[in-house]
């Protein structure tokens, strides 16, 4: 995947698209966009940095996984087998990008914060029970040659999940939800090893960098048209990120 930082306007439409496609619970951001500020007032600058899973070629999360629930497919996508994960969260501490999310709650509780309660009598009067809570049916299928349950979110409590590059869409030849939703086409998806793929042609001749490349993780998300965040960078606006604290 290539991400053009010159184009990104920080609208976070990709974040929304991801949540809808993958049915992620509240406070879980498989795709996230940093809205960053650098410098001191009045000489400040603002930048945006989308952060999906980096799908590293040398993934620390895969190395540390004690049960092989986290694995690297031959096409480069790093996935989690929700049927095998034991919830030790080692991948989460090993990942320098902070892209892993643990299912702290049961799936049915995980959405309670922001989903409409369909059995609410007030709501039923309006919808007549005709609009069920949305759940993407593709997420229940087993994916790939290896036929593992890797797509979507919140199948069980107590397992770790993260961005899958929308494996359920990629398997059908579609681009990930964030890519197709981006209104300014800042995200480009494709096979980096194929010189004629859209992402390879897009990257050709452009300055590029990878996040935390010095750690040797060799990410397959490549950024163009910008610079890595400096240590001075700080977030200026954050979405709701708490889970289960008091009455969240």
């Amino acid at each position: 995947m290539a991400i053009d930082l010159d184009r990104c306007q920080g609208c976070r439409a990709c974040v929304e698209a991801c949540k809808i496609e993958n049915n992620t619970p509240s406070a879980v951001f498989w795709m996230y966009v940093f809205r960053l500020e650098e410098g001191t007032y009045p000489d400040t600058s603002i930048s945006f940095l989308p952060r999906p899973c980096q799908h590293c070629h040398n993934p620390p999360c895969v190395k540390v996984c004690p049960t092989g629930a986290r694995f690297h497919r031959d096409d480069g996508i790093v996935l989690t087998d929700f049927d095998r994960c034991i919830g030790c969260r080692y991948c989460e501490v090993a990942c320098p990008y902070g892209v892993n999310f643990f299912n702290w709650r049961k799936p049915e509780q995980a959405f309670a914060d922001y989903q409409l309660k369909m059995d609410d009598p007030d709501l039923a009067a309006v919808t007549g029970g005709l609009i069920p809570p949305y759940r993407n049916p593709d997420l229940d299928e087993l994916q790939g040659d290896e036929q593992r349950r890797t797509a979507g979110s919140a199948h069980y409590k107590g397992v770790v999940e993260k961005c899958t590059f929308c494996v359920q869409r990629v398997e059908k030849g579609l681009d990930p939800a964030c890519v197709v939703t981006c209104p300014v086409e800042a995200l480009v998806f494709g096979d980096l090893e194929d010189p004629n793929s859209p992402v390879s042609t897009y990257l050709r001749g452009r300055d590029q960098f990878k996040l935390l490349e010095e750690l040797g993780t060799d990410p397959s998300v490549i950024y163009v048209g910008g610079t890595p965040p400096t240590p001075d960078a700080r977030e200026i606006e954050r979405p709701m990120t708490g889970v289960g604290n008091a009455n969240a």
């Binding site: 040398n58 895969v62 190395k63 996984c65 092989g68 694995f71 690297h72 031959d74 290896e146």
Partner: peptide, 14 residues
């Protein structure tokens, strides 16, 4: 047991 690698599906299975 599973081989010492992290770049393929086969690395995840013993």
């Amino acid at each position: 047991a599973a081989p010492w690698c992290a770049t393929g599906v086969e690395c995840s299975n013993p």
